[in-house]
């Protein structure tokens, strides 16, 4: 399992796609927003947490189809399925690798991009914290969607259609937790819900995703 994690991270690094593309996409989304809504700093301040969350979510979505598609195409997934690792473990490890190569860089970059969005003062820390708690759920839910669509020739768009509705609760609680904290309100409830979604996703979705993968391999 550690070997699989190491391999996936190494592959992402060598291909140069994982880290770089997601981050660049995130930067572009955040750059585009002021062009759309205008440069007034108070408007930007108000929408900053939401935009940062949506940007991170979209950047995460961008690389989801890589989780299983490449391994499916070159036959690795067949061979992994016959290896002494349970399919649930494969899913969990590959979701973790996706989070480390895509989610974690976004979490670290978000407070910096917050400067561009004129994020209010305590917001930088809170964006970091909420994304840190929430992005593992995004990777895991995404891995489930990727497992559903792995056998399809052009599954990319379908994957987005399937995954984005599943992302809604995470987005709502994540952005809400950040916004509340910035506005000086108590954000325990959304923060707990966000953590709950992440924990439940990580605990349960590998089983659903593994079932989907087995169906797609046969």
């Amino acid at each position: 399992m550690i070997a699989l994690l190491a391999r996936d991270i190494r592959l992402a690094l060598r291909a140069g796609g994982g880290f770089g593309l997601g981050l660049a996409f995130f930067l572009i989304v955040v750059t585009l927003v002021p062009f759309g809504v205008g440069p007034e700093s108070d408007i930007l301040t108000r929408i900053a947490p939401g935009i940062l969350w949506i940007g991170a979510l979209l950047a995460c979505l961008l690389s989801l189809d890589r989780i299983f598609q490449l391994d499916f195409e070159d036959g690795s997934l067949d061979l992994l399925a016959t290896a002494p690792i349970p399919m649930e473990g494969i899913v969990a490890v590959k979701a973790l690798a996706h989070w480390i190569t895509t989610g974690l860089p976004l979490v670290i970059a978000a407070p910096l991009l917050g400067v561009l969005m004129n994020l209010a003062q305590p917001g930088h820390g809170w964006i970091f914290v909420t994304l840190l708690i929430g992005t593992p759920a995004l990777s895991m839910i995404g891995a489930f969607g990727a497992a559903l669509t792995v056998g399809l020739k052009r599954g990319g768009l379908l994957l987005s259609l399937l995954v984005l509705p599943l992302y809604m609760p995470t987005l709502i609680f994540g952005a809400e937790a950040a916004t509340r904290a910035i506005d000086g309100f108590d954000n325990t409830t959304p923060l707990m819900m966000l953590a709950g979604i992440t924990l439940a996703s990580v605990a349960l979705l590998p089983f659903a995703a593994a079932a989907a993968l087995r169906i797609n391999l046969r």
Binding site: L162, L166, I197
Partner: peptide
């Protein structure tokens, strides 16, 4: 696959309902 999606989706749909209320 659609059955798996329907079941997992339902959990998230209920969650969304709660989240939206909140």
């Amino acid at each position: 696959l659609t059955s798996v999606l329907a079941i997992v989706g339902s959990v998230f749909a209920v969650l969304s309902r709660y989240a939206v209320n909140f």
